[in-house]
Amino acid sequence: MIPRTERADFDGWGLPLCTSSTIALANLDAQIVGLAQHYAQSGRTDVGARLTNGLLARHSIAFTARDLTAADRITAELVGRTPADPTAWITRAHVTTTTHRFAETMQALALATHHGAAAEAVTEERADVLEACGHGPAALRLRLAHGTAHTEPQQMARIACLHLSMGNDEQARDAFGEALRKYTNPSPLPLTAMLYNWGHALQHAGQHDGAIRAYRAVLAYLPTHAQALRALTE
């Protein structure tokens, strides 16, 4: 059994105590099962969107193709059934970004905007696309200009990663440290996403020792995190 993480030191930052991997993943599995049943019965867009987000959350940990395939199928259904619902298009964009189909993402975002999607949601997705395509400075400018929740730990961590990719190490560390300090949620899922992305950014910046420490921190919370495990064996 991997020891629980309570204010464990990570590069000088304290990490919070979070719900165990077993409980967090069991609760996520249970929620997905319930949402899947309800979506099958009702076909409702809001339920489909929540189910998709659950599947993507599980995919980010287990990295199983089945969850991603299901999310792709569900969002295709959503935009087909309710083409005037911006939630359907935003959710669709989230899936196509995850699968690196950026042209589809931009098309989905255009339709989301046309149907009245909130500007913040569209901006977030556009920034994700820019980041994935290697346009870090543009993504950072977009996030800083339009982001509405820079005080949220996850947002701050994303900005930190962008700073790192641009060589702004000091700003990156400041932002990431602040993100960790503000993290009080007992769920390990957003935290491990923050730590994994930080590790990924460090790896790309050639800071391999730091990346390894970040991936190990991910595994202290979620020992089955497939991408962190793979990154450590590469």
Partner: peptide, 15 residues
């Protein structure tokens, strides 16, 4: 607690 809890839902060990 835990609105809409499904069978298998569990209390947090960090709360």
């Amino acid at each position: 607690l835990f609105p809409g809890a499904q069978p298998g839902a569990a209390f947090s060990d960090a709360v």
